[in-house]
Amino acid sequence: MSRSSAFDGADPENLARRASSFGGQAAVYARERPDYPDAAVSWALGPVSGRVPPRVLDLGAGTGKLTEVLLRRVAIADADAAAADAADVVAVEPDAAMLAQLRDRLPGVRALPGSAEEIPLADGSVDAIVVGQAMHWFDLDRALPEMARVLVPGGVLAGLWNLDDDRVSWVDGLKRVAASTVSFTGWRPPEIPLQGTEFHTIEHAEFAHGQRRTAESMMATIATHSHVLTLGEPERTELTARVLDYLRSTPETAHGEFELPITTVVVRMQRR
């Protein structure tokens, strides 16, 4: 992991295990993880929205959660010929199981194996790169030049993160209850080191989002987090029981479906 990682000071072997842990639960990830709000994606693509259609790379696309939102924007634009924000979408994902889920769920999408450090596209072939819930795993020292290579001048790079809104008291309590012995404390989206790169002008925005959950589906979502995926079975079992007990005994979450409040954080920058 590079000097620009979001996990400064973390054990490199633990990071490697966590980064490669998602494929084993790819189907659950596809079913349980939230998507992204349309407004956040529109803001991310704002600098290139006048290009009709913009060519967009979903990098580290996983099971296609963000890809699906991009395609929804295409459908909206097709229904409204005056819309200028349709997108020509390609997805790139390094994990074979995650990529298989994406291809099964979105068979019409061009979906390629590859990584942020080795993108299987030609120079200057896309107008925008969007990264959903993945940029913190990139080796940014290698990935930033590679992303700049495939972007056109003036193209946009945007990272999106769905964060449970722990300003809400019960969500903060859940975060504490769901912590494990390998959780990262004070996690944050990575700071992007632009000095000496082809990018400039970092901008930030936040968007309200949410997901309907039950105690069981909320636990299923938590079970797709990398720190849980890499736990030994005894601690995973204990954590599951602890979280379910909390959700079933907390007034906001104890009575069937509830809304998980999410803040979608977006960071965008442009290629020189």
Rank of each mutant, 00 (worst) to 15 (best):
L70K: 15
V130S: 07
D8L: 12
V92I: 00
A223L: 13
A215P: 15
E68T: 12
F207Y: 10
W161G: 14
E206M: 08
R72T: 14
E118I: 14
Q101G: 06
H204I: 02
D123K: 08
L45R: 01
H136M: 07
A82F: 04
Q195R: 15
A27F: 01
L151I: 10
E198F: 02
A100F: 10
D11K: 13
E32Y: 10
S2Q: 06
R33P: 00
R213T: 01
V56C: 08
G62F: 03
W137A: 05
T185K: 14
V109H: 02
V168R: 05
T240A: 04
L15F: 03
E233N: 08
R55Y: 05
D139G: 04
W43I: 03
Y36G: 00
E252L: 03
T237R: 13
V92Y: 13
I192D: 00
A134V: 02
R55P: 04
P47N: 08
T181L: 01
D123R: 10
G232Q: 12
A6Q: 14
T221L: 12
G9W: 11
Q211M: 06
P120S: 13
A16Q: 14
V152C: 09
T250I: 09
I76S: 07
S217V: 01
I129N: 06
R188A: 15
A128N: 09
A111G: 04
G124R: 15
R271K: 15
V228Y: 00
D164K: 00
F7W: 00
R51Y: 07
G50T: 12
G210C: 08
A96R: 08
F258S: 03
A79Y: 04
A215I: 00
S49M: 08
R268D: 14
R268G: 12
S42H: 14
D164S: 06
S180T: 15
R213A: 01
A40W: 06
V109F: 06
R18V: 02
R31T: 15
T185Y: 09
G159A: 15
L106V: 15
A83K: 05
Q133T: 09
V131R: 07
R31K: 11
D127V: 04
D172H: 11
A39M: 08
V265I: 11
D88T: 11
A19E: 01
A44Y: 03
V168L: 05
V168W: 06
L59H: 03
A241M: 04
S49P: 05
G210L: 06
V109P: 00
A40S: 08
E13T: 05
Y36N: 01
W187Q: 12
E68K: 15
G154Y: 12
